[in-house]
Write a protein that binds this DNA or RNA. Structure first.
Lengths: 209, 209
DNA sequence: GTCTATATATAGATAGAC
DNA sequence: GTCTATCTATATATAGAC
């Protein structure tokens, strides 16, 4: 029976509330209330609400950077790509409050802007590296112009799908089903795969529904 | 030299400020200040800030509904589709404040939620109708499962591209270039077109860059 | 580390004169 | 229709006791 430090409990509680209610709607009082601690105690651990947001962003950033460190030379299988998409999607969903009110958050905590943009670029790069591996292996045929468009599109989907999807059923916002997002991302790649791989990808994509 | 009514000036000014700074960052005082009128005057015309947001949403909704009234039976050319995408994208961009902080806005003005969702569904339907016309004309080949995925994807792109794109260059937020968004949407359809149409679509898409 | 009580700031909104 | 002055509510943050 390990005791979780108050500081970490604040982070966990904040993350849950931010995701479910939107960061701007969550007051420091609500966070401390939810945890049954006093607001003063919360401010003992974090000197401002912005510090909580920044700390959570750092955790997201660290997770993402680790995931995005795709080796440029290793060849990647279709299954691995599916797994990669799944992990990325899951990480974004776990910190979806960032994307739900992105402009608002980035404008109020502007140290985050450049770091956010850096992550976005790295995501697109990772997709490019994966597609290039597919091309080398001869399972994908795509011209450079289309490749760029697809990688951008994959990045957009990775970032916004969970927000987009959540709004279709605003009732239960406790959890996000990653399935459909991964499905959508796989389907963007399918047209450029060779026929056999297309079938494999289609089968794989259905597992996510 | 026609005099614009104060009420309309409030709407125009609010829209511009909302788009450029994000709705939550725009206070009623800022709006009245920007127009060189008093806050009291603003509240004479609108009984709350939420009323301004609702009114702007109504304008967006009306524009969208008109645009989305795609006749189910008429056949649509590729050029017409390009034009349609352009108009949709442009309308979304003009009211992009809604999408920039969507969760926040929909949670605070919850009469908007169902109407927003209705619009989202209608967008997807319109894309479906267009693609079905393409299929009937024999310029597109796509199975029903892929079709669904593509239409969802087009909807996502239509809604979020401008927000996504804006964050790549947060400097000048005065205007949004619709080009790239239309380009992206066209490229999602290209793989399913017949070879000749693919080439035509590719050429067309470049015009938007 | 945690609490209670309080300070500060600001946004939304109203009252009443002109 | 428009203004100035003001009220109210609430969110962030701090002070000081325990």
């Amino acid at each position: 029976m390990k005791k979780i430090k108050t500081r970490d409990r604040i982070l966990n509680t904040s993350l849950a509330l931010f995701n479910n209610m939107g960061e701007p709607n969550v007051t420091t009082l609500l966070i401390s209330d939810e945890m049954d601690i006093s607001p003063g105690n919360l401010y003992y651990h974090f000197k401002s609400k912005g510090d909580i947001v920044e700390e959570l962003f750092k955790l997201y950033e660290a997770e993402m950077l680790e995931l995005l460190a795709v080796p440029e030379d290793a060849e990647i299988s279709l299954d691995q790509k599916g797994f990669f998409l799944h992990l990325m999607f899951e990480a974004v969903a776990r910190y979806r409050f960032i994307y739900q009110d992105l402009v608002n958050i980035l404008s109020r905590y502007d140290q985050l802007q450049s770091r956010f943009r850096r992550l976005r670029t790295k995501k697109t790069e990772a997709f490019r590296v994966i597609c290039q591996s597919f091309q080398r292996q001869g399972v994908m045929r795509i011209d450079p112009e289309q490749l760029e468009a697809v990688c951008e599109q994959l990045t957009l989907t990775a970032c916004y799908w969970s927000s987009f999807d959540t709004l279709s059923h605003l009732n239960d916002r406790e959890s996000v089903d990653p399935g459909r997002g991964v499905y959508q991302m796989l389907h963007q790649v399918i047209p450029y795969l060779t026929p056999e791989e297309q079938e494999q990808a289609r089968v794989m994509s259905r597992d996510y529904l």
